[in-house]
Design a protein around this nucleic acid. Structure first.
Lengths: 178, 178, 178, 178
DNA sequence: CATGAATGAGGGTTCATTCAT
DNA sequence: TATGAATGAACCCTCATTCAT
């Protein structure tokens, strides 16, 4: 079953190029960067971008979904603390996506993807609490709130590694409960 | 020194009206709201707004400075924990300003104002550490980073009071050191 | 009572220039002509056109209203047959307006203006019937239908004067009843 | 003469499907409907449409020709009055074609087809005059002008059956001479 | 010959900024 | 100095047309 004509391969490649370019462009200039700039970076004509993503929002949503899916995957390979560190480290490189995660301006619905991330973090939280690494009183909503906050902070604050470590250390201490 | 001519009074009043309108408009619609909308809300013509703030960025910078100055003042009347709660609570109502603080898109330099806020928070931190309410190992940079992160998180996350309290509780526990 | 600042005069002049240019452009190229072309013909920047008519439809509606108002006025100075001749002769020069009158594509509501025209023609019809120049059985709806049809026909058919006269003669004979 | 290779059969079928789809689409949405929509409705790829009709105008011209040919055929089976009624009734269902007939926007030359229609109507006219049903003074050009006008009017005016009957009655009375 | 992805000019619209009044 | 009309670059998006597969 060879579903999809050979041309489909080109289209797939272009779709990926667009997403990569968009992620880079939006990361560099924010979501206000023009779709034209994305096309330029992807080395494609503007029409091609709109053929793949009929709306700028569609493009942003697609980026968002990809980022969240990646985070969910990343969550599977780490414990809660490592995942926090990882996510925060990623943030700086994912300006646009974090903006979107934050809901700034553009109305984007990625409930499923967000739900999956929440599920993944929930599993990490349970593991951490079972291992006694996080206080039993801590619940998922505040963990997600802290994760989002720290990603935003890292993104916009321009933290260096040292500052990031010290900041996370405070939060981790808080999670452990004391 | 002609600083006090009758016209100057008008100008000062207009400047204040513009800033108030801009804060309200940008808080409601984000920094993408048009300058024209700000003028409308201020009950002034667009030209007047640009006479006072030659650039939209200038206007945004001015709002930022005013917000930070207010925060510095607020810091003087609270302890570290109360101030965190206050700042976070404010965030939701100051969408635009927090965006700016975060540097999203528009390039704004308000080093002095930020420095003053840092100073104020530094004083609160010292007080809290002197009182044994915050671990001695905690330093100002991470406190500022946490403050900014939580403000961002509160702003974009749409936290209710309960979630805000639980989230802050984790951070406060972390600051106390345990 | 000097309502309106002096600048208003300029704006009024520009509004008129835009309407004149739009009528000419749309008459020449149809309603598909670009707003940019209208601006060019008016000797104004595109932004000015959109300041006066926030939407292309707004511009088309405005032209339509003006044309209909003119027709209503024209109706006051003629009998039914002369008015038919006049309207049909105008049609060729008013491509766009007739298109709009016909409702082609663009959704425009000018019910009031259309109603006024209908009223004016109704008066002419009554006069003609009172004078025995039109059969008593004829009613307004079909007169309006004939008027619109003939305007369309004249517009798109490129009739010369002779053909127009002969065509109208048939319709006039029909109205007289025989 | 290779006119009859198996492929030719496919091509002919596709050509017909495209014309049918185009007539339906343009009738529904006007000539502004996209060629892509036509391809979709025909169940073909856009490239196939352009292979058969290198230009959108070519497609529109082809539709026009087919419509006129059909009208010519219809004319053979009716007397002048019945044909008028038939053509006008068709108009509403042939939005696009009538648009084209009218020449609105797209520049299309279908002189031959139009000539044939004119010939057919000329025959009907002669018959009617021979039968004394139409005044001898009436000539073909104004009959064609009336026909086109009424089709336009019916198309854009949204006439109901009653209005159409009354409107045609006036024209028929005019043709009869009185 | 059919396919459908890619192209890119062009269209409607917005908005920061300028400048005549 | 305040006003608000004018400007025009830039943006998002559409669609006729081309061309590699």
């Amino acid at each position: 079953m060879v579903e999809g004509s050979p041309l489909r391969a080109d289209a797939q490649r272009n779709r990926a190029r667009i997403l990569d370019a968009a992620e880079a462009v939006f990361a560099e200039f924010g979501t206000r960067a023009s779709t034209e700039e994305v096309a330029r970076r992807a080395g494609l004509a503007i029409g091609t971008v709109f053929r793949h993503f009929p709306t700028k929002d569609d493009l942003l949503t697609a980026i968002m979904k990809r980022l969240l899916a990646q985070l969910v995957e990343d969550a599977g390979e780490r414990d809660l603390f490592a995942f926090f560190g990882h996510a925060v480290a990623q943030a700086a490189a994912k300006k646009a996506a974090v903006d979107l995660l934050a809901g700034s301006g553009i109305d984007i619905r990625v409930p499923d993807a967000l739900g999956h991330l929440s599920d993944a973090v929930g599993r990490l939280l349970t593991q951490a609490q079972d291992a006694g690494a996080v206080a039993a009183s801590v619940r998922l909503p505040e963990v997600m709130a802290l994760l989002a906050s720290l990603c935003q902070g890292a993104l916009h604050g321009g933290w260096d590694d040292h500052l990031q470590a010290r900041t996370l250390a405070v939060v981790f201490a808080g999670l452990k409960g004391c």
